[in-house]
Design a protein around this nucleic acid. Sequence first.
DNA 1: TATGAATGAGTCTTCATTCAT
DNA 2: AATGAATGAAGACTCATTCAT
Lengths: 209, 209, 209, 209
Amino acid sequence: MGKVEENKLQKLNALLKSSYELFVTKGIAQTSIHDIVQKAGVAKGTFYLYFKDKYEIRDRLVVKTAERLFLKAYEEVQKEAFHEGDTARIFEDKTIFLIDYVLEELKKNKLMLQFLSKNLSRGFFHLALESHEYSSEVKLIDYYYKVLEENPTVHLRNPEIMLFLIVELAGAASFSTILENDPISFEELKPELYSAIRAIIRSHIEADK
Amino acid sequence: MGKVEENKLQKLNALLKSSYELFVTKGIAQTSIHDIVQKAGVAKGTFYLYFKDKYEIRDRLVVKTAERLFLKAYEEVQKEAFHEGDTARIFEDKTIFLIDYVLEELKKNKLMLQFLSKNLSRGFFHLALESHEYSSEVKLIDYYYKVLEENPTVHLRNPEIMLFLIVELAGAASFSTILENDPISFEELKPELYSAIRAIIRSHIEADK
Amino acid sequence: MGKVEENKLQKLNALLKSSYELFVTKGIAQTSIHDIVQKAGVAKGTFYLYFKDKYEIRDRLVVKTAERLFLKAYEEVQKEAFHEGDTARIFEDKTIFLIDYVLEELKKNKLMLQFLSKNLSRGFFHLALESHEYSSEVKLIDYYYKVLEENPTVHLRNPEIMLFLIVELAGAASFSTILENDPISFEELKPELYSAIRAIIRSHIEADK
Amino acid sequence: MGKVEENKLQKLNALLKSSYELFVTKGIAQTSIHDIVQKAGVAKGTFYLYFKDKYEIRDRLVVKTAERLFLKAYEEVQKEAFHEGDTARIFEDKTIFLIDYVLEELKKNKLMLQFLSKNLSRGFFHLALESHEYSSEVKLIDYYYKVLEENPTVHLRNPEIMLFLIVELAGAASFSTILENDPISFEELKPELYSAIRAIIRSHIEADK
DNA sequence: TATGAATGAGTCTTCATTCAT
DNA sequence: AATGAATGAAGACTCATTCAT
């Protein structure tokens, strides 16, 4: 990589980094291009060499953040030992573990949750399901299929829709409870949420012949 | 009502009406006070006689819209005959009916759905669960308790959290499917959504002694 | 006085009183008609039945305040016994006493001093010298002539200009020292100020034949 | 100086110039940012690149104007020959000359005087005594000490306070007479004012042993 | 006389975007 | 490629004043 290329990458990263910090701290609407470039230490005009506007930078950040999170969640599932009960039960446990890992991470980093939830109406989970122009190739659904493949005796009626429902439920329910303890605390919600998710999973597992 | 009072109400309504129309068409951020008062045919200063800013007007509109919708849903439940199966099944059916009515209304009026979903981070459904300063007294949860009372043999482990989970699920899942047919169409989602909701309800119904 | 007249006077006084309080607390520019009428407990339109604008009310207040102050100062001079030295010295002492009384009153009520000095470029003292449409008939200069008459052997070269110079000097010098201790404290200034005033008086006293 | 720098200076000066003209003509309160930038031929946003608000521009103008005036007055004192009488008399004459020069300049430019007197509660002369953030370093008091040093046999009891008193007196008395011929004309006032100033100076000159 | 709802001009201020250097 | 001065549209909000009741 030439010196020029290196310099460009450096500026790009400075812009991404300062944007992320500002978005997460002040919120997107309250962050101006001026704020971003000042924090990044580049000139105003430079911003426009890399991004169309701040919403483009936000989209890139959201995708990047989501992917990183899911990759880590998947890696943690792999490390864990699941063997209590039958394969259906193991699959259920793995799903809950995955969801729980992500939610706990978001709980630890509320600013990140706020940033993600505030700026994506459909929520963080949903986005990660979709293909996206900035995205690299791996999606939550791909990880999920891998988990599924590891338990070949489990048959789901409609795995994609099931995951969609679970993700929407977990996302929507945890946003308000984590951020506002409303209507109950996240800790109180958790057992009920996971019990509901298990109920959904079971209703999707087809009886073996 | 005196002439003055009449005139005041007229202005208030003109402002609410033009705001609503602009919000659902252009979005809140893209709507200026200038737009609102111009459409309403009143002076700029008049706006500030009735509202602090456009977010106050939005909140009032959201609450008003949500209440109207739920009241109608509840009325429709009352008209309908439910008698297939045991009381638990009847309760399930009534819940699904209620949800379905609201979702169908939102589907008919996508602009309203968009407006509501875009402007309430926690979602339209969630709001309706809570008390609110602009709100009259009846809430979704109240309607729900009424429905519950009509089926006194049904015992729910935790009716409030159950409703919260159902509402978050239905809300989140239907927003993206209705507005963007993504990842599937709303029509395809429906049976799966309702089946998931039934699974959640059943997991909350306590076994009779 | 009829009931209507009484009511009118009451409103007028309420407006004057609330204006004064707001002017000395927040300053004139920061006080709106809305503030005044709200504090006075009358309607906005009522303000315009009594005053053209807030500057008219300010002028009336300034004159009223100044007159009251000078009347009191003159009364105090009358109570005091002056007999040390010759008539010229007694006249000098009376003048200093008069000035000192007014300055001490202003020092006690800095808000009043601020209000007067901020809103009259030429200062409080100067105004009181002039005839004014809202003013009743007695002016500082009239009091001064009375003092002069009590000491008939004293001959001043130009009493009016002398008083003008003294008043401007005392006013300007005390404003900044009382309000801001700048460049020295008022207490430190006083002996120097009064010594300067005495020097001016002496230079105006004509030698008797 | 690069083209950019040159252009910046040009804009800054255009803003200062148009502000000054508007302030002295209409008064500060009646001058809007819109007026200023329009007259300067720059965009509204440009104003905020150079100044926080119109009060900052006013302060800079006042200081700039005052400094220029006093520098010129001092230079004129240096050019003049003073030798009539003893050193005390020469010192007196120089002081009067200095004051007179400034007052005559203000008389020539009544708009400037009006602007200065209206917008500085403590008075224009007073300002010139003080250090100020926009100011370069030389102050009236510095010039005055120089004058004093040129006459080493003159001993003043308290030169700083004496100057303060003289300046306040000259400032306050001349504002109203120059601007409004009130209560007498400036020309009529002058001999009396200077005689008063001489009386003050003499009362500060300490008797030689 | 008194009211206070209504007005809309006026003001400040921010900010994305452009473009000459 | 990078800069940052300049732009000016756009927006929020205030407030003295009017006038129908």
